[in-house]
Design a protein around this nucleic acid. Structure first.
Length: 271
DNA sequence: AAGCTCCCCAACCGCATGAAG
DNA sequence: CCTTCATGCGGTTGGGGAGCT
């Protein structure tokens, strides 16, 4: 048995949205929300549209936080780097560009950026995401995986950031909802004799960096132990979960500890 | 001015996924 | 476990505006 259509195509309007329809949809969603049911929404709102069409119109055009207008050079760079890493995962790429939708990014890539990169010769230097066997794609095949994100501007080591994979946890991890949306990991030269030290930075939409390395006295790794001394329990859980993954994304550095989670002392564990 | 081509982007389509029953 | 269905995603289409002849 085939799947039933989501709406009666003979009784719904298709094609471009009129300003009146936009106003009805905007007003309804702002007043009542989507109710978690886009299929029922058009009937309730008095629109002769398919629920899917309403959802798309809202997400891609009417949402108040949508950014209209041209892409910046910085956005170009983010798209280029992410496409190079993960291919046409437009929703993932768009999630790193505040105010941009997957449709926006996809259209922009197909119509402008690709040509721009071709003419500059950068496309020929790209990885081939679809056939890539790099670990980033492996990560992305896992539902619980961390998703690579671009570094924010203003990082103190931009060259290194460009070489190392950077990850964020999906927003769906409600327990970490207090964290900034992106968390970046980079490794840098150890200042400790027996272990690598990692700087763990959170990037917000602004270019500011919250350092969590030893010098800022927030948390640090030493001799296989992770220390946190400022009540950043959620961050600590988060960091551990990431670091325990076999694929911990720091190349050319040994992992400094093995899973021994949970510890009695929520601030510390060792292997 | 008219006709044509190209390009952009909003919108659609079909499939995958996951939740619910 | 199976079926149904809503949602989300990436690929594709086509209307209309811009630019060219």
């Amino acid at each position: 048995m085939g799947r039933a259509p989501c709406c009666d195509k003979n009784n719904v309007k298709r094609g471009p949205w009129s300003p009146e329809e936009d106003a009805i949809l905007r007003s309804y969603v702002e007043t009542y929300g989507t109710g978690g049911n886009w299929i029922a929404l058009p009937k309730k709102a008095g629109l002769r549209r398919c629920g899917k069409s309403c959802r798309l119109r809202w997400l891609n055009y009417l949402r108040p936080d949508i950014k209209h207008g041209g892409f910046t050079d910085e956005e170009d760079e983010i798209i280029y780097n992410l496409y190079n890493e993960i291919g046409s995962r437009w929703s993932v790429i768009a999630s790193q560009l505040p105010g941009r939708t997957d449709n926006d990014v996809k259209n922009y890539w197909n119509t402008k950026l690709k040509k721009k990169l071709l003419s500059s010769g950068r496309m020929s230097r790209m990885n081939h995401p679809a056939s890539s066997s790099n670990h980033v794609n492996d990560y992305l095949a896992d539902d619980n995986a961390c998703i690579p994100v671009m570094p924010g501007s203003g990082h103190e080591q931009p060259q290194e950031v460009a070489l190392n994979p950077i990850y964020r946890f999906p927003d769906a991890f409600g327990t970490y909802q207090d964290l900034p949306p992106q968390v970046q990991y980079t490794s840098h030269e150890s200042r400790l004799s027996s272990s690598q030290e990692y700087s763990i930075s959170s990037i917000t939409n602004s270019p500011s960096i919250t350092s969590m390395d030893r010098t800022s006295n927030v948390s640090y790794i030493e001799d296989g132990r992770f220390f946190s001394d400022n009540g950043m329990g959620q961050m600590w859980d988060f960091v551990n979960e990431l670091l325990f993954r076999d694929e911990f994304p720091v190349r050319n550095h040994r992992r400094v500890y093995q899973p021994s989670f949970p510890s009695d002392d929520p601030r510390m564990f060792s292997n």
